[in-house]
Simulated assay, not measured.
Amino acid sequence: MAEPLRVAVLIGSTREGRAGAAVGHWFTTTAARRAGLDLDALDLVDADLPAAYPAAPTPALTRFRERIARAEAYVVVTPEYNRSFPGPLKQAIDFAYDEWHAKPVGFVSYGYRARGRHAVEHLRDVFLELHTVTMRDVVALDLLEPAFDDEYVTALLDELTWWGLALRDARRSRPYCA
């Protein structure tokens, strides 16, 4: 059996009273039922990242970059705030650069009406610049629904796993150069 695909689940809201922790926990618990994945939940609330980009990396920033580098695929859990994603998530994404290259990124978004889809569209542009492959299938949740549906998690993980394994093989046979 192949080694598990290392997937970082980045929970991107730091707002007090956020739904992000519950959504991230639901997704990670649901994804953990799938064989072949090694999940690393990385909640920005607990990451202790600096508020501004420092002249020299802090120990917390170094640990964050190492976890991003170790991952072979990512799932970003994001709310939609004012038709986009939260500032702390952008700051965290920008703290790494090469670590993201040639890896797939999937999205779990949440909100009302649009279900976080505007945030995902903005994130696609950001991750394009970081040389990633973003997944077509998204888990988009309406916070007014009484329960979250696992149906779309399977489609996202199928796509993420395929790309994650393909890009893992590609990086091993030929280093990516941006």
Rank of each mutant, 00 (worst) to 15 (best):
M1T: 11
A2N: 13
E3D: 15
P4D: 14
P4K: 06
L5V: 09
R6F: 08
R6K: 05
V7P: 00
V9G: 13
L10H: 11
I11P: 01
S13P: 08
R15P: 08
R15Y: 14
E16N: 13
E16L: 11
G17V: 07
R18T: 05
R18C: 05
A21I: 03
A21N: 06
G24C: 04
G24K: 02
W26M: 04
T30L: 03
A31R: 02
R34H: 10
G36T: 09
D40T: 07
D40N: 12
A41S: 09
L42A: 06
L49I: 00
A51T: 02
A52I: 12
A52M: 09
A55Q: 10
A55V: 03
P57G: 11
T58L: 01
T58S: 14
A60S: 09
A60K: 02
L61E: 11
T62I: 01
T62W: 02
R65L: 02
R65Q: 02
R65D: 07
E66R: 09
R67M: 01
R67K: 01
I68T: 04
I68R: 01
A69F: 00
R70L: 12
A73P: 01
A73R: 00
V76P: 03
V77M: 01
P79A: 05
E80V: 10
F85T: 08
K90C: 00
K90P: 00
Q91R: 15
D94E: 03
Y97D: 09
W100G: 01
H101R: 07
H101I: 10
H101F: 05
K103A: 08
V105L: 07
G106E: 02
G106V: 01
F107G: 09
F107S: 10
V108P: 04
S109T: 09
S109R: 09
Y112R: 13
Y112D: 14
R113T: 13
G116F: 00
H118M: 03
V120A: 07
V120G: 04
E121V: 03
E121M: 07
H122Y: 04
V126I: 04
F127V: 06
F127M: 06
L130F: 03
H131T: 08
H131I: 02
R136M: 11
R136E: 12
D137G: 04
D137S: 04
L141C: 05
L141T: 13
L141M: 14
E145A: 08
P146G: 10
F148V: 13
Y152D: 15
V153F: 01
L157T: 12
L157H: 01
L160N: 08
W162T: 14
G164I: 05
G164C: 05
A166I: 05
A166S: 03
L167W: 05
R168E: 12
R168P: 03
D169N: 09
R174E: 15
R174Y: 12
P175C: 00
Y176E: 13
C177I: 08
